[in-house]
């Protein structure tokens, strides 16, 4: 019976179908917010208020010619992208977005493993084509990975450690997410949570390659960086991977740091989650729309000077409070 639940969850809710819709809807929200901040209209023609534009873009790209340049490893890249998409969908099964979530003691390790799939897929995608711009983009992304990934992982561990200490979550992502609202009620753990939330959001910005951390795909310098040689279905998968990453990681932050549906319960909790999710997406879009691109060394310096110390301090506090 559990297998049937897993199949339903991974394919329908909150898995593939749900997250596919949420991810492309989020892309529309981001495009609208950024456009309005830049005095543009954003998507306007396909569907009401242009809502169906991301869906139209995706299906149009998927139906195009699948071209691999000479010397590229197209099949390997496609396989990695597909597995990375699957990994993100699997991650959503480990938070209480689903009524029959997957959990076990220490499952945070599995979650961190799943989180690495998109990063690996994108790095390999850049190095898998014979293009100097792609290789440069991948190299820049790899440099950023070493700057944002440690604080991001540390920040995600903070609520897990606190929940293990306070409510016996046994390093489980799912149980932590169920109890994360209570972690804000004690002054010491609230400080740790606030610092970790700050680190997680800024590291998320770098992980998603949004401005000011869009260095790996800086159009004016390296064409499209990692994505220069990609078109058609592979580009559709890359864009979808980006969108699903934003949607899933925002939901993970909502559940781990912001208490999920709290303070509401039952069906009203969905509204609470939606509002918190929108706030995270709004913050990401706001920073993207209002910040200029950093140089790669500046980005690393910012991540190490401000984000990493915040994550380390929150981690240390979480051990002592």
């Amino acid at each position: 019976m559990q297998i049937l639940y897993i199949i339903f969850q991974s394919l329908i809710f909150p898995g593939l179908l749900f997250i596919f819709f949420i991810a492309l809807a989020t892309q529309w929200i981001v495009r609208k917010i950024v456009a309005r901040m830049q005095n543009r209209m954003g998507p306007a023609y396909t569907g009401p208020y242009g809502f169906l534009q991301p869906f139209a873009d995706f299906f149009k790209l998927m139906g195009k010619e699948d071209i691999d340049v000479v010397g590229s490893a197209g099949a390997a890249v496609a396989t990695l992208l597909l597995l990375a998409l699957g990994a993100l969908v699997a991650l959503i099964l480990m938070i209480p977005a689903s009524p029959w979530g997957l959990y076990a003691p220490g499952d945070v390790i599995i979650a961190l493993y799943l989180l690495l799939w998109p990063t690996i897929a994108l790095v390999v995608a850049g190095f898998a084509v014979p293009n100097a711009f792609s290789a440069t983009g991948s190299s820049r992304f790899l440099s950023l990975v070493f700057a944002y990934e440690p604080p991001f992982i540390m920040a995600l561990l903070v609520p897990v450690i606190l929940a293990t200490r306070y409510v016996g979550a046994e390093y489980s992502l799912y149980i932590t997410a169920l109890n994360s609202a209570t972690l804000w009620t004690k002054p010491g753990s609230a400080i740790a949570m606030a610092l970790a939330l700050f680190a997680a959001i800024l590291a998320l910005q770098a992980k998603l390659m949004k401005k000011p951390f869009d260095i790996p795909e800086a159009e004016q310098e390296i064409i499209a960086g990692i994505f220069t040689e990609y078109s058609g279905p592979k580009l559709a998968l890359i864009i979808l991977l980006h969108d699903i990453e934003l949607a899933v990681l925002s939901l993970v932050i909502v559940y781990l740091f912001l208490g999920g549906p709290a303070p509401l319960t039952g069906p009203l909790g969905i509204i609470s989650v939606a509002i918190k999710y929108f706030i995270i997406v709004l913050i990401v879009s706001w920073i993207r729309a209002s910040a200029a691109r950093l140089r790669v060394d500046q980005a690393i310096a910012i991540l190490w000077k401000y984000v990493l110390p915040a994550a380390i301090i929150s981690l240390i506090i979480s051990f002592f409070v």
Binding site: G15, L16, L83, G86, V89, A90, L102
Partner: peptide, 13 residues
């Protein structure tokens, strides 16, 4: 179970 949850959507994609 997580592997199943990962491979099923990957197969559909």
């Amino acid at each position: 179970l997580v592997s199943l949850g990962m491979l099923l959507p990957a197969a559909i994609f």
